[in-house]
Design a protein around this nucleic acid. Structure first.
Length: 462
RNA sequence: GGCGGGUUGGCGGAGAGGUUACGCAGCGGAUUGCAAAUCCGUGAAGACCGGUUCGAUUCCGGUACCCGCCUCCA
């Protein structure tokens, strides 16, 4: 069996991956808070873990991998949107309006991630469906002395968990020194974080032993991973920005509530995304969503290719230049594999690259070496979610240029006789100007709509 | 202040203690009415300073610069 090696954030080393049960490999990815369209940065972990999911399925078998990715649908930004709708006169309770909003957002998320060629996880739990499990976990934490209730809040007693900070490499005392923790009257210690908080009438809430309220952010992942994957599972992932405090808190909650288990054994974190060398932010004006790119005509497969060019542990820079290059490569490859029956299995070199901590850039390099064997290229590319049939519509000609091609061929034939190439050159120049790629060979004339193709600027046929 | 990541040829971007990464661009050639596309060939690197070593871009230490996290965030 292929030996998989993964960089484990927990140990800060590349380790051989050994699943608890090779017939039931389990991984959890922190999913989106569904308050709006996913931005480009949200898509990076999705693509990275999609490749990991494909690899695990390849190595252990399609039915031997369980991939869970949650939807966070309890959140103040969602509440704000729902409240704004209610204030604007929308029908229904606040909870119903929240549900409507999140259903809408989840639909967008699915459409956008599907466009990137990401396989759907085996389970996509919504936090609101697991409130009972969260309450049960909080009760266990209170009983074991790791949490306490105060003024309608329940807080996790950070100093009760000795290994707190191990994942992100900080000590509790360092954090006090940093002093950027919220001090509140209901906290025993400024480091303690919220498991449950009260809701007023303006906010969604659920009944609990501590009154009507809602869960803190971190508890949902602990509760859902426990319910769906058990007290010990293989891989947990997300963006590096989640490492602290979110993942640190998840570990504390899960390990204290279920000391018999060891929670996630391998932690994978992807680095952040930049745009043209800068952090993507609304203030810099370089903020955009996946849908924005798709609407601009950049195919999801191209976005995916650009992502895979950079190793997931390094910051990735999105640039228009990279997108253009990726499109050219994919166009070429799609031309090579069109109508070709895929090879029975992917190239070992590609599996080897991916098995080495998801070296997707290395795997792409291997694909370049395979252009002489389109069948193998096709099958191997699919390990990366590329060159799949359902992803290829974008390469189809955007217009029927047969008439123009025939006209150009006729002009050329005349020109060959008359030794006067001016008319054919003029027509060709006009085509190029309209964004058409012109290919003339002994075999004939081929016209392809290029990147800047504009049908309105096509020359008349006379 | 604390924690973490990065710095490779014109650009993007990997692996490996000693042998060509790869892609794009460039250059030369084939081909073409001219181009494009395609094919063949080709130059070019490892932030800086030390150390280990027969040998380091690759390991260790330091410096500089860039970036992220520590607050909602993928």
């Amino acid at each position: 069996m292929t030996e998989l090696r993964l960089h484990n954030s927990k140990t800060r080393r590349k380790e051989v991956f050994a699943p608890i049960d090779p017939d039931d490999v389990r991984m959890y990815l922190c999913g989106p808070t569904v308050y709006d369209r996913a931005h480009l940065g949200n898509a990076r972990p999705v693509v990275v873990f999609d490749v990991l999911y494909r690899l695990l399925r390849h190595v252990y078998g399609e039915d031997s991998v369980t991939y869970v990715r949650n939807f966070t649908d309890v959140d103040d930004k969602i509440n704000a949107t729902a409240k704004a709708r209610k204030d604007a006169g929308a029908e229904g309770t606040l909870e119903q309006l929240i549900h409507e909003r999140t259903v809408e957002t989840i639909g967008w998320y699915h459409a956008d991630m599907d466009a990137l060629g990401a396989l759907r996880p085996d389970a996509e739990p919504r936090a609101t469906a697991y409130i009972g499990a969260m309450i049960a976990m909080i009760e266990r934490l209170i009983l074991s002395g790791h949490a306490y209730a105060k003024d309608g809040h329940v807080l996790f007693r950070v100093r009760s968990y000795q290994d707190y900070g191990a994942l992100s490499g900080r000590s509790v005392d360092d954090m006090i020194a940093g002093a950027r923790v919220e001090v509140a009257p209901f906290k025993e210690d400024p480091l303690d974080f919220v498991l449950w908080k009260p809701s007023d009438e303006e906010l969604p809430g659920w009944n609990s032993p501590w009154g009507r309220g809602r869960p803190g952010w971190h508890i949902e992942c602990s509760a859902m991973s426990y319910e769906l994957l058990g007290d010990t599972f293989d891989i947990h992932g997300g963006g590096i920005d989640l490492q602290f405090p979110h993942h640190e808190n998840e570990i504390a909650q899960s390990c204290c509530a279920h000391p018999e288990g060891s929670f996630a054994r391998y932690w994978l974190h992807n680095e952040m995304l930049q745009v043209e060398g800068k952090k993507m932010s609304k203030s810099l004006g370089n903020f955009f969503t996946v849908r924005d790119l798709l609407d601009r005509g950049i195919p999801g497969e191209v976005i995916r290719f650009v992502f895979l060019q950079t190793h997931y542990t390094k910051p990735m820079d999105w640039t228009a230049e990279k997108a253009a290059q990726a499109e050219a490569v994919l166009r070429k490859w799609r031309g090579l594999v069109a109508g070709i029956e895929p090879a029975p299995s992917p190239a070992p070199s590609v599996i080897a690259a991916l098995s080495d901590d998801l070296n997707t850039a290395g795997a792409l390099a291997e694909l370049h070496a395979m252009t002489g064997d389109p069948a193998l290229l096709k099958t191997s590319a699919r390990m990366l979610g590329l060159l799949e049939d359902h992803m290829g519509d974008w390469v189809a000609p955007k217009a029927d240029l047969t008439a123009h091609a025939d006209h150009l061929a006729a002009l050329r034939a005349t020109a060959m006789q008359a030794k006067d190439f001016a008319p054919v050159d003029a027509f060709k120049a006009a085509l190029l100007d309209a964004g058409v790629e012109v290919r003339m060979s002994k075999a004939g004339v081929e016209l392809l709509p290029g990147v800047g193709f504009d049908p309105a600027r096509l020359p008349p046929l006379n």
